[in-house]
Design a protein around this nucleic acid. Structure first.
Ligand SMILES: [Mn+2]
Ligand SMILES: [Mn+2]
Ligand SMILES: [Mn+2]
Ligand SMILES: [Mn+2]
Lengths: 218, 218
DNA sequence: ATATATTTTTAGACAAGTCTAAAAATTAAA
DNA sequence: TTTAATTTTTAGACTTGTCTAAAAATATAT
């Protein structure tokens, strides 16, 4: 069994490993968890003793298969709870993360299986992130940043890169919702801003926004 | 804000105070929480510093109004989660307690309000125990033990005194469910067992069972 | 290749929560 | 009302997870 703290370290390493081939550095973990490098070194030793990471001094850390499975299960719980909060309890997508951070540590396999069923076995959370299955496998869908679209191309909104409540509330304000179709009308060379069409309405979108919104080309 | 451990102490004292006029003894709390008296003394000092209990050395402990409110809120969360598990996730009433012990510590007022609404503002949990409102008030319904019924009197099942899974599963097996009406056909002086009628069926019930099942006289 | 800067680890400390063993206070019994 | 038994508190230790400051290793720059 793993403590709350150990689970958070495993999850942090799991997230950092996606899109990284080398071992994860002590500093990277410390930054992710808003803690100090020395604390990370201590915890890594414990996790190494428990066979969930492989650790070589000064060489960074990698999850073992066991570690990956445990971490994926925490992510699974986090995302299922986020779906629950939005679908069943009328939370908006910018309110769910902090509560899910707590709920993800509840230990009860039956609870999570039944929750999965109640929600109709969702494949993605409210931010468009995939929900790992019971074995920790997740299918990556083919998505790209809005900024990668060319003029006159269209895409369906499928996720966000930045899921801070600031960004999510901004999208709400602009009526940009996952599932809607965006068409690029114009790309400005000057500031890389975009003129887009969504829901029949025209909108101007800064480069920063376009770099944080995922779409699937249609 | 209170730690998980502090919350568990407050809840234990809250339960012990129901049906006790004096201060709650160190040993009583230690037994309830399956810990040692010395640990209780340490924690009581902390809770006293935080103004949630009043503590006089060797004289036991009492919740302040603030302490009562916080404890009642934890009980509220515990019981709402139990209702959720039974009503929405198909848990049986003997499976919910351990999970609720974890869920009761999740901090999110919105979560609990929305959960309350989703469940239709229930007044009692699956074991017949009342759910405190947002202010910590709970209305005690007039219930008595099955063993208090006289021959030919009837009552509706409204709760259990012992909510161990052993007892609950026993009731399941005998088809004794909250809401059903029980009529006492016979009382045996010899062993204080009861012959009862429930759902048209006749059943023999030991004194131990009759002393752990609450009914409301009809 | 050597010096400098950065990263990582170690050493030592601290708070929370728990425990055992011993001392002090209270309660019950003779 | 003394003595004995029980309850409660204190003293000191241990674990988990964290921190700061200093040492060691690695990476970067001249
Ligand atoms: Mn999240
Ligand atoms: Mn999410
Ligand atoms: Mn319970
Ligand atoms: Mn209950």
């Amino acid at each position: 069994m793993f403590t709350l703290s150990e689970e958070n370290y495993l999850k942090a390493i799991y997230h950092l490993e996606l899109g990284a081939d080398k071992g994860i550095s002590t500093n990277a973990i410390a930054e992710q968890l808003e803690t100090k490098a020395s604390s990370v070194t201590d915890m890594i030793k414990k996790l190494s003793d428990k066979k969930v990471v492989v650790y070589k001094k000064y060489k960074g850390v990698k999850l073992t298969d066991l570690g990956k499975k445990i971490a994926a299960n925490i992510v699974r719980k986090h995302r299922l709870w986020e779906v629950f909060l939005v679908e069943k309890l009328n939370f908006s997508w910018d309110e769910v993360h902090d509560v899910a951070e707590q709920l993800e540590h509840i230990k009860s396999p039956k609870l999570i299986n039944q929750l999965d069923a109640l929600l109709g076995f969702p494949t993605h959370d409210p931010h468009g992130d995939p929900i790992p299955d019971e074995n920790g496998n997740l299918k990556i869908i083919d998505k790209s940043l809005l900024s990668a679209l060319q003029k006159n191309e269209s895409g369906i909104c499928v996720g966000v890169d930045d899921s801070s409540s600031g960004f999510l509330q901004f999208l709400d304000k602009k009526d940009i919702v996952l599932g809607k179709i965006i068409t690029v009308l114009e790309k400005e060379d000057f500031d890389n801003s975009l003129a887009i069409q969504i829901d029949g309405k025209k909108l101007s979108i800064s480069n920063k926004i376009a770099n944080n919104l995922y779409i699937k080309k249609v």
